[in-house]
Write a protein that binds this DNA or RNA. Sequence first.
DNA 1: TTATATATGATAATGGTTATCAAACAAGTG
DNA 2: CACTTGTTTGATAACCATTATCATATATAA
Lengths: 141, 141
Amino acid sequence: MKTIYQKIDQSEYRMTPQRSVVLQVMLENQGQHLNAEDVLAKARSKSPSIGIATVYRTLEKLAAIGVLYKNMFEGGSYRYELSIGDEHQHHHLICLSCGSITEVEDDLLHILEERLENNGFQVVDHELKFYGYCPECRVDK
Amino acid sequence: MKTIYQKIDQSEYRMTPQRSVVLQVMLENQGQHLNAEDVLAKARSKSPSIGIATVYRTLEKLAAIGVLYKNMFEGGSYRYELSIGDEHQHHHLICLSCGSITEVEDDLLHILEERLENNGFQVVDHELKFYGYCPECRVDK
DNA sequence: TTATATATGATAATGGTTATCAAACAAGTG
DNA sequence: CACTTGTTTGATAACCATTATCATATATAA
Ligand SMILES: [Mn+2]
Ligand SMILES: [Mn+2]
Ligand SMILES: [Zn+2]
Ligand SMILES: [Zn+2]
């Protein structure tokens, strides 16, 4: 289990002021799923001249080395979130009514992954979304 | 468990020649994950004047009533496939090396879903992707 | 038929993401 | 230091999948 900084050190990732700001934004918004525009706005409050291209490039790089998860929910844009302590991506509960996104730490995919490994598929990561109705939105009580 | 035709009948879905052609294309390409351009090309061989807008509209409608699954894999476009017999979407194994997509019928999410239901989240469907290396691409043997 | 609603296809518009490129910056050389 | 070389940045153009628009066509209702 590598830390964020181990991941960065072990990559060919040069820390620049802009990249540092983007990383800071992600650290300060743990648990949220931000898209590039969100990150740009928050980054500009720290470093007003940062451009959207740099934000995209940095998010992409951080996702490539496993510091961020990149996910597509509804809305047509990719959303990023910090990956700390998770070996594998956690799961998401997506409410079909209010759109809220809740995390599930519970893994429980080990049994399934073990079965896949036995069939020759080497599992690196997974992505699991549950669609349904959150406690506030469910109708049947 | 409704059949495709039951789903269509129970919707406010009017069967037109164009929609019929799109449905036919999906039926004839079971197991494949086609994007709108793929469907357009195959549909045009049956009905040359069909337009891309109608294809998008029809795929969207068929997905809304549960006849198709709509999924985003790599490549930047949504891909559609027939949903027959599956109450829930099946899982996908995506090879990080060759990009091949394999199906997993095995559900095994019941335990997890039961736990979520007990916590108040009403599960409607799920989407599970495993990323890793297929038997041909894995290195460690 | 006539009226009304829905569906279609061409094409324009949208919008998130990527590519381009000149300028800025960093790192190494002697 | 001056010089070279390579990397990063930000503005902006290009890309491209998808959606919106709208006039025409087609189906349904009266
Ligand atoms: Mn999350
Ligand atoms: Mn599939
Ligand atoms: Zn909700
Ligand atoms: Zn492979």
